[in-house]
Amino acid sequence: IRCIGVSNRDFVEGMSGGTWVDVVLEHGGCVTVMAQDKPTVDIELVTTTVSNMAEVRSYCYEASISDMASDSRCPTQGEAYLDKQSDTQYVCKRTLVDRGWGNGCGLFGKGSLVTCAKFTCSKKMTGKSIQPENLEYRIMLSVHGSQHSGMIVNDTGYETDENRAKVEVTPNSPRAEATLGGFGSLGLDCEPRTGLDFSDLYYLTMNNKHWLVHKEWFHDIPLPWHAGADTGTPHWNNKEALVEFKDAHAKRQTVVVLGSQEGAVHTALAGALEAEMDGAKGKLFSGHLKCRLKMDKLRLKGVSYSLCTAAFTFTKVPAETLHGTVTVEVQYAGTDGPCKIPVQMAVDMQTLTPVGRLITANPVITESTENSKMMLELDPPFGDSYIVIGVGDKKITHHWHRSGSTIGKAFEATVRGAKRMAVLGDTAWDFGSVGGVFNSLGKGIHQIFGAAFKSLFGGMSWFSQILIGTLLVWLGLNTKNGSISLTCLALGGVMIFLSTAVSA
């Protein structure tokens, strides 16, 4: 259960009878995928790494000078000259100064003066180019299975845990398959586009800190620079940016070097996208990844198990997540596992009318040892309800109150669905055939309105939902006002479609 501690969480529900669903994975976010007769899966884009970055340009932001020398000439005696002028490691300046009897010249006039100092770069920052084909995306998957609280967001041991898996995709191999043991396998067909235009970005490294910066900004930095990788004795261009020549006297000129420019660069980098280094690879934390999940090989585990009949206890007080759902960790005293956990939410304890829904599909106890633990997640209705676990006299209950409203949740879900469709863009549509167009249209309606429909009408039977949709269509056909007619027709059509397409 990876997503319960992530604030940016998206719930995606598969269409009834569908074998695939489109998701948008982004750094700092987590996606929970639910479908009829399929286990619930949490998917998170953990890291995006980039390798084989080529150094484009380096800037010196802290330097020192040494070996200063000057040469001067009297008027009419030609130009002052130093051998160091031809050495690229030196920074030199030529000027004219007033000369006369007082400073060793027989004539009054302008004399030539040249001053040089050896330039040494102490600290530099480097910009590297990123090729999209060198990106690698690491995705962690977790099935809502027989897990306890100690396994949440624990990325170790996934090789031997059938509840978890790690997959890596690249532009050259965008397809992967996550093996989930008894739950089958989940196929991923990803489109490795981060949403960032790397043709316009460089990877900047300064003092063990890293950013993504725009090329134009990078090339306009007014500091000494050299092109390409460091060859040991780089040729620094624009050395004068960190060196200041003071007022010249008759035979000498003082040279000083400016202080470190790291603070000024940090100020200019305010708002830039931060990154990290992992050995020789860069780690990015921006952008998104679009994936199509193929769920035809994914299956529920323990459908044929019998119900657990022994007593359950709450190991922890049920807690609310950031998303309005409830996490419950229970301990089973029996030894008759594997068995299914009898769990439901009810409005009252007399009729036990089921409300809400299970995020953890078909929760089971897989071990036959005593005191096995299991964590599950529920989506309670707004208002008061009861969490009921167990059967008969051994069942345990917990009162729950959820604040908020169904309308607010439906609106929030619609906005999130619209954002998801905007990110998917043209990849969500198939114009290759008439059937493809209608299929894409259905998927689009489901992406945007599916979660809201589930919130508003999830407790009704599909037949009642179709009746309401048919009534809206009838009202649309018999209303003389054009805008009201079109609105009723659209709402009725969407409702009829979703009542037959969205899983219960």
Rank of each mutant, 00 (worst) to 15 (best):
V343C: 15
G390D: 07
S122C: 02
V21R: 00
T267R: 15
P318V: 01
N103E: 05
H249C: 11
M68K: 02
M15E: 04
I448A: 10
D296E: 12
A504G: 12
D296I: 04
V12Q: 07
F11S: 10
E62Q: 09
R94K: 12
G14I: 06
T231A: 10
W225Y: 15
M68S: 13
M15D: 04
L45N: 12
E329M: 12
V328R: 01
S368G: 14
M374E: 01
I43F: 10
M151F: 02
Y386P: 00
E244W: 03
E26H: 03
T313H: 03
L456P: 10
I1N: 03
E177H: 09
Q331G: 10
A280Q: 10
D220Q: 10
K84Q: 14
G184T: 05
G78C: 07
D336W: 13
L467G: 14
T47Y: 11
S142Q: 03
W462E: 02
G492H: 11
A501C: 13
E159A: 13
G435F: 05
Y81M: 10
K246F: 04
Q447E: 04
V434P: 13
E26Y: 05
A422R: 00
Y90T: 09
P363M: 10
P363K: 07
E168W: 11
E367Q: 06
G181A: 13
V143R: 00
T351Q: 15
E55Q: 15
S86W: 03
G493M: 15
G482R: 12
P342Y: 06
Y203R: 03
F453D: 06
C291P: 02
N371G: 14
L180S: 14
K297C: 02
S485Y: 00
A63T: 08
G18D: 01
C74Y: 12
M374K: 03
L486Q: 05
K373I: 12
S70N: 10
S368M: 07
A241S: 14
K394Y: 03
S403A: 09
G259L: 03
Q331W: 05
F431C: 14
F312W: 11
G404H: 11
Q344H: 14
D37C: 03
M277R: 06
V391D: 05
I43N: 07
T427A: 14
Y90E: 10
S112D: 10
L180C: 10
R193M: 06
T309Y: 04
V255W: 03
I496P: 03
G263L: 05
R357L: 02
Q331R: 09
I445A: 04
C488A: 10
G436T: 03
C30D: 05
L441F: 14
T353D: 07
V243S: 00
I65M: 13
L358V: 14
Q344V: 13
C339Y: 13
V243D: 04
K394Q: 04
A418N: 10
T487K: 13
M34P: 04
P342F: 08
K373E: 13
G492N: 10
E62H: 08
P75H: 03
L489E: 11
P132K: 01
G302D: 12
L378Q: 03
P39K: 10
Y305L: 00
Y137I: 04
M495D: 13
E159H: 08
R94E: 14
V473I: 15
A319D: 06
H249A: 08
E79W: 12
L456W: 07
P171T: 10
N163V: 02
R73L: 05
L475P: 03
I387T: 10
G181D: 08
F449D: 13
F218S: 07
N52A: 01
L441Q: 11
A250M: 10
D83S: 11
I389L: 13
K419V: 10
A501P: 00
V167T: 02
E262M: 13
V114H: 06
F457R: 06
L25W: 11
S455G: 13
F449M: 12
S72T: 11
G450K: 12
W236D: 05
G157T: 08
T194P: 00
G195A: 15
D22I: 03
W462I: 08
D10Y: 02
A418F: 07
V391G: 14
L298R: 04
L456V: 13
P380W: 07
K251D: 03
L322C: 04
G279W: 03
S372F: 01
A35K: 04
T48Q: 06
V257F: 08
T233R: 08
K395P: 05
M295K: 12
E216M: 10
E162M: 10
L475A: 14
E55P: 02
G450T: 08
N481A: 13
V256F: 14
N134I: 13
R94S: 15
K128S: 04
V41Q: 03
T115G: 05
K373D: 01
S86F: 02
G111Q: 04
K166R: 13
L376G: 01
G127N: 04
S440T: 11
G18L: 00
R99N: 08
S51H: 14
Q89I: 03
S142P: 03
F312A: 05
V415K: 11
A227W: 02
F463H: 08
A178E: 03
G432F: 05
T487E: 05
P224V: 05
K110P: 01
L293Q: 11
N207A: 12
T160A: 15
N237D: 09
W400L: 05
A310S: 14
V50Q: 04
E244L: 07
V257H: 09
F312T: 06
L307A: 14
T88A: 12
N52R: 01
V167W: 12
G100K: 06
A54V: 11
D430T: 06
E274I: 06
S142E: 05
T366Y: 01
L204K: 10
V21M: 09
A452T: 12
H144Y: 13
P75V: 04
D220F: 08
R420H: 12
Q350C: 00
M460P: 12
P342G: 04
T487S: 09
K297V: 01
M68H: 01
